[in-house]
Nucleic acid binder design. Structure first.
Lengths: 141, 141
DNA sequence: GTAAAATATGCAACTTAGTTGCAAATATTT
DNA sequence: AAATATTTGCAACTAAGTTGCATATTTTAC
């Protein structure tokens, strides 16, 4: 897929979500598509090349993408939130995220999926489930 | 269990872990025992009564308790880390944490446990697994 | 195509979480 | 009770994330 193909795709995603097609949103979507794993605001900023956007803009852009379900927030050991494309995630569950305790890298383990937790008797209604895994990656094992 | 019984218990836990029995550690353990759910530094501070400890002390205390496995870090939707007693948690998995999307309260669902994820072929070694659930609590459902 | 309306962006200033270094205080060991 | 080991408080700092407002860009209506 060429660069402009990806950009076309980003534009379609934004249009379908009824969001303005702005350079910020397109760029950030491209960065996330190419990364294929959760990135923090800071990482997104560094990867968005010459047209660096303001920190506030990145946060607000992520918020808008989040509000229409184009991205997800992933919980990580790091203090900052990480964001990733909502690709292949269902309403109820995304793939588990694996963080290597040795090198610190995070991977999306799209091959794995755990059964959804069953609500306990007391009347809890479970809508979504997120799973975080820790251990050693192939390079560090 | 009376207040001093709890304190005795805290002292035993610290002694077994070969940590100095200081008023800060005892107090913070008591707060966590009474809470029964993950608390942030800020919440711990508010709940530790008259002998409020310095923010830095609380962080360092939690760190020491963490290092000997007496407490766990829980990931939450909030920006701050939350800590809880490592009660009933195995090496590999703790109970899932449930956060109500309506009222924001967090519960420890000790009745639920998911099977551990199986390592995918590629050579990942999974050591620990954490599960976060979202939905409606009995009061909000 | 252009003007008006709707929304996004940048900047400055702010809040909150968490950390570091160092001197003073407290806990344990002898 | 003194010496040693460890913890605590304070001040000052870093980094993540937010808010308000003026300006710029995108879309819509004509």
């Amino acid at each position: 897929m060429t660069k402009s193909d990806l950009e076309m795709k980003a534009r379609e995603m934004l249009k379908a979500a009824k969001l303005y097609c702005t350079s910020g949103r397109i760029d950030i979507l491209l960065v996330l598509m190419k990364a294929g794993k959760p990135l923090s605001q800071n990482q997104i900023s560094k990867r968005s090349g010459k047209n660096r956007f303001d920190k506030v803009t990145i946060y607000r852009t992520l918020e808008s993408l989040l509000s229409v379900g184009l991205v997800h927030k992933a919980f990580m050991e790091k203090r900052a939130w990480h964001f990733e494309l909502a690709n292949h995630c269902t309403e109820r569950q995304c793939h588990p995220h694996f963080t290597c305790t040795n090198c610190g890298d995070t991977y999306c383990l799209t091959e794995i999926s755990l059964p959804m937790a069953k609500s306990p008797h007391k009347g809890f209604v479970i809508h979504r489930q997120q799973v975080r895994l820790e251990g050693l990656c192939p390079a560090c094992a």
